[in-house]
Nucleic acid binder design. Sequence first.
DNA 1: GAGTTTGAAACT
DNA 2: CAGTTTCAAACTC
Length: 778
Amino acid sequence: QDSPLFSFINSLSPIEPLKSAYSGNGLQAYHQSLNVTSVSSIFTSPHHNAHKESKLSKSSFADYTENELCMEDGTDKNKSPTSSTAVRLFACTSTITRESHTMITCSVNEGIVDPPKGPNDFPQPGRFDSGSPDHNTAPCHGVSVRSDLKQDKCPKLETVQTTNNTVEKRKCLFSSDMQLQDGCQPAKENNEVMGCEWEDLVSVTSGELLAFDSSMDQHHTGVQLAVNNAESCGYLLSKLAGGADISDRTHPATSSQAYYHEMVVGEDKTENGQLFPEDKKTILSEEIQDNINEENACIPLGCKVETQQRGVRRRCLVFEAAGYSHRTVQKESVGDLSFSTCKGKSSAQNHRNPGKTPSPHVFRGIGLHLNALALTSKDKMACQDPLATALVPSLKTEQDVHGNLLSAGGNFVHSGSGLLDLQMDNDDCSVGGFLGNDHNSSQSSSPPKKRRKSDNGDDDSCKRCSCKKSKCLKLYCECFAAGVYCSEPCSCQGCLNKPIHEEIVLSTRKQIEFRNPLAFAPKVIRMSEAGQETQEDPKNTPASARHKRGCNCKKSSCLKKYCECYQGGVGCSNNCRCETCKNTFGTRDVAVSAENEEMKQEGDQTESCEKEKENDQQKANVHSEDHKLVELVVPITPPLDVSSCTMFSSSLLKQPNFSNAKPPRPCKARSGSSSRSSKASETVQSRKISKVGDSVFIEEMPDILREPSSPGIVKTCSPNGKRVSPPHNALSISPNRKGGRKLILKSIPSFPSLAGDTNGGSAICSSDSATALALGPS
DNA sequence: GAGTTTGAAACT
DNA sequence: CAGTTTCAAACTC
Ligand SMILES: [Zn+2]
Ligand SMILES: [Zn+2]
Ligand SMILES: [Zn+2]
Ligand SMILES: [Zn+2]
Ligand SMILES: [Zn+2]
Ligand SMILES: [Zn+2]
């Protein structure tokens, strides 16, 4: 048994020849061995098998073999339900891409994962089934289509490269897994400890997968599966290699995410790098958006999805993120729309798979995965889908788990993917613009339209870095920092942050990450919180977000983009060391703040403060309202300590990751973004604070994702980028504060946890090799 | 677009 | 960990 796995792994790098086809037999057998009856039943479901098989047959075979391997592994370890899923995934994957590697990995993971899940199995299966049947069929087609597309579009050369990449990726994945195993806590343990959580996770995953299926088609499903699988795989691997111990540590979730990322990333890269990119990317993005929108509805994917395999994967990734957005959207609903197209669409479409919808956002967001997951769960919950419901619980759990366990896993993932994604981002950027636009035009109706899309902006908007001495291999470079490769819009000199220098980029990234694990973690953490429950106000809960590391502003009073907090659209937290903080999104020491702030302003700092104040006021004058709001808010601000919250917020972490990836910011607000932001902000305002917070939050995420530019969240709003944007500020501010307070409580901390998670995740993701490093930390 | 300001990143 | 230098973005003009 083990031997097979090992062999499998070994073989991984090259492509393995698995032989068997993954046929149902394997699965069944597997199931039996596993014991998971319930699961088995689910998996067993003929439907799936049939579908899978059919799919598999269609697609690839090599993959299947892999599946077999997986199966075997699984059997060894036990697993079950998942296996079936995994199988599907594989099948899908295979078909979809050559990425079979990834698939393989996944399969492995799946095996592992499944077992633990046992309990969860039920849900999963159910979900699975629900989704799968219909979807499956469709997906298959989709897959085939994609293949065609790829072939057509991609030149042979590209294909070749891709393959190579894939292989490498595979390796990486493995390595990652390995690492994870080593570093990570064992799934088992977790399971035991958190049995519930674990289960939840699993279930969640399943749910997600299902959702994907429905919405996205097979591809998505495949992706999801892969993800799930990946997670499980990690265990397996660890077990196999290291033995149980490893598995114990690792978090399945984490592993999986990481993998997922990688896979996704890998694809993206390939596509991006090789293919082309933009067009496809754009398409993808669009598709994604569409999907997202549709997702809810369940849709479409096939066609759209087909277009780009990549897209699919991304979508998968997005999922998580999507969840986020979704949730928010849903909750907030309309208001959100303004944010991004997505929202609008979602609102329109939402129905079914709300969670998915968001995915597009996520997609851009990059880092969102983790968060997305969490959100997803919520979303799902919110969502009507049965799956969702089922998932919901699990989702939450997942979040917790992630946070707790894995933070690492989740986080890292993004990092790894980051680079890859980055490329995506570029596309995204543009896309981002379009997102709204495209979607709007075509799909949605939406709402808001986002504006113009493109019009404008996009083009310009997407400026990127203009590095001269860093070669774009240091954090000075926004592209690099965001985990993206430099692209056309960049005006950098001596740039090495390009796909062709992938090795260098990854190695450099690892180094930096090694020094500072949080380096690529999302800067801003958000909590979504769900709000749900929280409810303090009826409205919603706010979401809080804060800059992980806090700023150290001295002269900007945190009122300009010089301040990372402000730029990120979040208020300053206790982590900030700013002087004279006037961050419109919330000042530091809020709680204390009211009094303190006043004190400070008038008293101590008067000096600098005064000046600043004056300046601010001046601006304020312009914006006077804003300031006022802010002030008001300030008092409100509660005293939370973020710290406590933060750590915890593992879930947040996830998001951040994505966010981290952020954008290359590039885009300025200019057209699109600005409009967006403004809209968003407006919306927010109108809505109200509590929501506002969320909305803002959402905005941020999306923005980030979407546009690189937005980074600041646009918030900033100011289209020109000039400094202040009063109105916006005001709007945003209010939300923040309100949200901030509440949110803060929850989210704030993200920092550490995120970092940890992120790091780990990123490491893993990022590069295989690099990843390894990452694992350790968390 | 050039030049200044700014605070993070990098370095010591 | 603090202090300094380097850096590129944010901002100004
Ligand atoms: Zn650069
Ligand atoms: Zn660049
Ligand atoms: Zn560059
Ligand atoms: Zn600041
Ligand atoms: Zn700050
Ligand atoms: Zn501040």
